Simulated scan of single mutants.
Amino acid sequence: MQGRSPAIGATTGLDEAYRLCRQQGLRLSRQRRLVLEILWRSGEHLSARDIFDRLNADGRRIGHTSVYQNLESLHSNGVIECLEKAQGRLYGHRADPHSHLTCLESGRISDLDIELPADLVEAIEQRTGFSIESYSLNLQGRPLP
């Protein structure tokens, strides 16, 4: 049920991200391709600074402003996700509805595909008076001993 209309899912490849960019009318500039490649290759949630540092460590010279502008454009067009965290914005290679698990020790964020039991969704609807159309969970925890 986690769904508004899905854009890009967990198993979708980089080629699908390129297709979605073209479909949204976004030019696939060298910089935009590099940003997408870093996100897909890492599979992590990264800040604009993380992406900038990784690109430059790979010898790919691209300005910080260019990285940020491309991330914002990709996010606003539904190609990637943006998470607002205390430490700033983090970007991920998914834009479809999904949940997250944050490790309280390392800060690492993992994508989760979770579907709540139908009876729980119904109970929430009855309690709130709203028809639930989509949801995402933000879970926090520590590794089990």
Rank of each mutant, 00 (worst) to 15 (best):
T128G: 04
R94M: 11
P97D: 11
G43E: 03
L83G: 06
A118N: 01
D111T: 15
Q23D: 05
A7S: 15
S134N: 13
R30L: 14
L20W: 03
G78Q: 04
T102N: 06
I62Y: 04
G107K: 10
I38V: 15
R49S: 10
I51P: 05
L34V: 01
H93E: 03
G59Y: 01
A10V: 05
I124P: 01
L104S: 11
G63R: 01
L116H: 07
R4V: 11
R142T: 04
S47T: 15
I132D: 03
R32F: 08
L144D: 09
E133W: 12
S73V: 00
E125D: 01
S66R: 00
L101A: 09
L34I: 06
L83E: 09
R32N: 06
P143Y: 04
E133S: 13
S47E: 08
R61Q: 05
G129F: 07
R54A: 06
T12S: 15
E81M: 04
Q126G: 09
L55K: 00
R54M: 10
A10D: 00
M1K: 03
L74G: 02
T11G: 15
L39R: 11
H75D: 03
I80N: 11
Q2A: 12
F130W: 07
H98S: 12
P145T: 08
D119V: 01
R89Y: 04
P97I: 04
Y18Q: 08
T128R: 06
C21I: 00
R127S: 15
A48Q: 10
L137D: 13
L101S: 11
L144F: 01
S5F: 07
Q69P: 00
D58S: 05
E37H: 13
R32S: 12
A17Q: 14
L104Q: 13
I51R: 09
T65G: 04
S47Y: 03
L137W: 10
V121C: 05
L139M: 11
Q24N: 14
L46Y: 08
G88E: 02
E115F: 06
M1V: 07
E115N: 09
G59T: 00
Q23G: 01
E16Q: 10
S99Y: 06
L101E: 06
G59Q: 02
L137I: 12
S42H: 14
G13C: 07
A118E: 12
L20R: 15
P143A: 08
L28V: 09
A123W: 01
E37N: 14
A48V: 02
L120I: 03
L34Q: 13
G129L: 01
Q2S: 09
F52H: 14
S106Q: 13
I114L: 15
H98V: 11
E122C: 00
I124C: 06
L46Q: 06
H45W: 15
V35C: 08
L101V: 02
P143G: 03
E84T: 13
D96L: 01
V67W: 03
